[in-house]
Design a protein around this nucleic acid. Structure first.
Lengths: 151, 151
DNA sequence: CCTTGAAATGAAGTGCACTTCAACTCACAC
DNA sequence: GTGTGAGTTGAAGTGCACTTCATTTCAAGG
């Protein structure tokens, strides 16, 4: 059991494609040493970073924000469980918020199925102030949303 | 109060940019009549379609699937409340599933914050069988995920 | 040594959901 | 009738998260 992993090994063990790992490195999310022949060798601690990245993505965080979070880890030493705890906890509010909005949407959808409204009137389903912003992909430059009014 | 809307009016009342409305039309999600001068005029019923599109997006459905759903609406007559109810209900399972996965992620994150694991070992956070597939954007062609193993 | 599978690189491509741009035409109030 | 804001089009651009490709180099076993 060596103390470093090739990109192929890290890929298999993390479930992340080699191309994605190289991409993460370009973005500064993970790092690797190089062999004399210029091949990447990952310290075992990188496995945790990759795990953190994938979990964070499920929470709906962008790679750029994940990078910022990872930059707050201590340099020099291997991050402790407490370090990871702090990072994970920082997504907690976001996760709660997403769950809350989605649950609201579900409940409202129930209500609206009952009344069959689905109009833009005052239906709680269609409230831009309270929307799942950044949920999907799509262009980032959006016109400021006008408030919808009655049908 | 006229019975048709210009693209600007539909945009303001739906909160969707004109460019997005044209895009939806190209994809076959909405339709418009044309004036003699080739300008779009939307029937009021299109407002409901746009509302349905935006709500569906919040549920995490792609425009392509939304198009398929909308195609199941009756042609010829204006869709009834029951028609919309049926469509909305068809997203319900998906919404439930998303909420379930996110909630699981939250609970597991709590547990893992306690134990500080965040490894790829057997942490329930990192289970590809039970992932929020299709949550983010990103390329569609993904390598089949290898099962992650212990650190 | 030689072969063979793995790895390296940069550039380009993919998919989604749009937006932006340029050049032009409409519709309507005055 | 004229000006002005709103609308039209196709083509190209944007942002994110990657993948694919072609070409070349490495590493390790036999």
């Amino acid at each position: 059991m060596q103390d470093s992993l090739t990109i192929g090994e890290l890929s298999v063990r993390s479930g992340v494609a080699p191309s994605a790992l190289r991409y993460y490195e370009r973005l500064g999310l993970i790092r690797a040493d190089r062999t004399g022949g210029n091949q990447r060798r990952y310290a075992r601690a990188e496995l945790r970073r990759v795990a953190f990245i994938r979990i964070s993505q499920q929470v709906g965080v962008s790679l750029d924000e994940i990078r910022e979070a990872l930059e707050s880890l201590p340099g020099g030493r291997t991050p402790s469980p407490q370090d990871w705890e702090r990072l994970s906890a920082s997504w907690r509010g976001r996760l709660d918020e997403r769950i809350r909005l989605l649950t609201k949407l579900r409940d409202d959808l129930d209500g609206c199925i009952g009344c069959g409204c689905l109009s833009l009137q005052r239906c709680t389903l269609y409230n831009p102030e309270d929307t799942l912003a950044g949920e999907g992909p799509g262009a980032r430059l959006m016109l400021p949303r006008a408030s919808p009014d009655g049908e």
